[in-house]
Design a protein around this nucleic acid. Structure first.
Lengths: 244, 244
DNA sequence: GTGCAGAAATTGGTTGGACCATTGAACCAC
DNA sequence: GTGGTTCAATGGTCCAACCAATTTCTGCAC
């Protein structure tokens, strides 16, 4: 028997219909991230469905991070929306312990190296200027406060992801950021966490600015390696005061 | 003014509470993928919330692919669930065109290179045997059918992801696989798509077996580069018969 | 007993209406 | 201006009912 690969028909797919209509609306109205979209009650009325159905549809989008709901205020667009979006929901089990953090760091190393290399190939003058600006801020902050500033550091890396010409990098990293951030703020008791990574920020940027992809890749790998070392030191410290 | 970094508090988080409770339930009962979980009505009653709230919570999980709802039948677990899950919903705008595929390929290159390097460090004898077995199958299939077999090729790469000691790699790649697979089956009219990548599979494996991380990384990069070339050729072909 | 068609129960999907909690703007007193 | 107060708008929750798909049970024909 021939194998058909017909997509399953959902006779009742009101949610999806609502989302499709909403996506069309967003595109027509050229709504951009940050803007407010119609209230649930209005959507329900216009689309001739119950408000509950609208809510389930919006809940989907909220779960996908496309939209943010603020009680008493409204529903706001959080990301660009188009009709031909492809969703790749990832759920990663167990990211709260040392092992989990180490694993996310390995992912970050993979992406950071590639993003730096791509950036070295593609970044134009404006991109480079923006990245260097963030780098300067970070370095100044580092010297003033005598330590890594997670916020400014993050801005720098983000600028690279943004300039690499592939939004997927920024999306994936951003999704992992919260988890990573959590530990950055409480680095397992390691003093001067991230300190060793400082010089590599500049060397990595130099390679990018020189349009040297392989050099940038190598510097990125070194940078992450220092963070991994810090993490391992922290884990060793923590073992002394272990809790189940 | 001093900068506070107070995280916003969510006074009302019934949905999350429901999901947390449900995740706990799934873990306690050791429910596995495929099994049915309690009906919405029962959950509502037990958790002392309205069925509507339960539905919104389940809609979240459904959107994340953790659960599947079948009208008239029940709600079924689709993936392992734990309390400390990290959700990483990715949305790729315009994933149907050449650009979108190219972008996913760049992600894959990043992960493939890192996974190969990690694998070269960590793979033990059993892992290597398993990978080589998949490689042999793929090579035989290649010679018999005189072309790349996407299925066997995929199995080979998957074996590497599995042996690299970090399940996140396999999860992320798996999420992108469907999209990638789609194009692999219809490679934009390019004859012998993926043909050029064939020899690098063996060279990459040799580096892994020799515990040479940097060599494995380099071979992985070359492998993906050939696929990118094929893709670009395909895009050039396609341009002749363009459709809006 | 077997097999099958139809009835009944179960379960997710949808509806409409109500009320609560939060927000933000308009307004007022000082 | 500053600081409350009021009030309308908006998302969050709840309830009770009904619809639609599925599963299970029942009873009849054989």
């Amino acid at each position: 028997m021939t194998e058909f690969s017909l997509p399953p028909i959902h006779t009742t797919a009101r949610d999806d219909a609502v989302l499709k209509a909403l996506a069309g609306f967003v595109m027509r109205e050229k709504l951009e991230p940050g803007e407010r979209l119609p209230t649930e009650r209005i959507l329900a009325e216009r689309l001739k469905v119950s408000r509950n159905t609208v809510r389930e549809a919006l809940t989907r989008w909220e779960g996908l991070g496309l939209v943010e709901r603020r009680q008493g205020s409204g529903t706001y667009l959080k990301a660009a929306v188009s009709l031909d979006m492809l969703h790749m929901p990832l759920t990663l089990a167990g990211g709260n312990d040392f092992t989990g953090l180490m694993r996310t760091l390995e992912i970050r190393r993979a992406l950071e190296a590639e993003a730096a290399a791509l950036c070295a190939i593609r970044a134009d003058k404006d991109d480079l200027a923006e990245i260097e600006r963030k780098l300067d801020i970070m370095e100044e902050e580092f010297l003033n406060r005598a330590g890594m500033s997670s916020e400014e550091d993050w801005e720098f890396h983000q600028a690279i992801y943004r300039a690499c010409g592939n939004p997927l990098f920024e999306q994936i990293i951003a999704a992992m950021h919260e988890l990573f951030h959590r530990f950055w703020e409480h680095p397992l008791g390691v003093r001067d966490f991230g300190h060793a990574s400082f010089p590599y920020h500049r060397t990595m940027f130099d390679c990018i600015a020189a349009h040297d992809p392989e050099g940038a890749r190598a510097e990125a790998l070194k940078l992450i390696a220092t963070v991994e070392d810090d993490l391992k030191r922290g884990a060793a410290n923590l073992k002394l005061s272990d809790r189940t």
